[in-house]
Design a binder for these strands. Structure first.
Lengths: 101, 101
DNA sequence: CCTACCTGCAAGTAGTAACTTACACGTGAC
DNA sequence: GTCACGTGTAAGTTACTACTTGCAGGTAGG
């Protein structure tokens, strides 16, 4: 885990909308439009947050065909536990200063 | 721990400068100007980062009088371990929706 | 006096994350 | 055809964080 990755993972979590997205998806896998309805936010905005969460590895999305033939994009959480300590920060910074020497 | 607090704590960590500040202070307590010199950043900018870290509870600062009578503001890290999991997020969001019901 | 340190803050700018609006496209039902 | 559902993206605005510059104040020493 590089310094940038660790920071990106923390930054991806640090947002109330994204907290609510994860909390909802933790209980059931939902498709984008349904998720937007439950959260009361625009689909376009939700997309942005889902992308951030997905690229940080907290959720994954996949297309699914409904009975009516509609393509639905379902998202689900990837179980995780992010721990940051003084020691992990020291290690990340040192690894970074080594590599860029 | 409220939802906002938890997010503030995560956001306060999610920054490369602040990672370096913590990594430096983990080894020795330093005063602001010395810290700025070691990090190669302006004192004013460092101040802003220190304030964010202090209000999130990761570091503490106190004035100290040097032998030459100069007032130096020393900072040191408050040992911490921040863990965020799917369960902790669900709990935080539920506690929040309860309180604001 | 001037220089060399230090703390502390305020005002302005730059850069980025968040958010809105609007569009293109595709399916099934009326 | 049109309506109601869905995905996906691009362009523009707002709001916030990060950052710079500059100044005020203090102490010690030449």
């Amino acid at each position: 885990m590089t310094l940038d990755d660790e920071i990106a993972r923390l930054a991806a979590l640090a947002n109330p909308h994204r907290f609510r997205i994860i909390a909802l998806l933790a209980k059931e896998s939902l498709h984008v439009s349904e998720l937007a309805r439950r959260l009361g936010m625009s689909r376009a905005l939700l997309y942005m947050h889902l992308q951030r969460l997905e690229s940080a590895g907290y959720v994954t999305g996949h297309l699914e065909l409904s009975d009516e033939g509609k393509a639905l994009k379902f998202f689900e959480v990837v179980p995780f536990a992010v721990t940051t300590t003084v020691a992990s920060i020291v290690a990340a910074v040192e690894a970074d200063t080594e590599s860029t020497h």
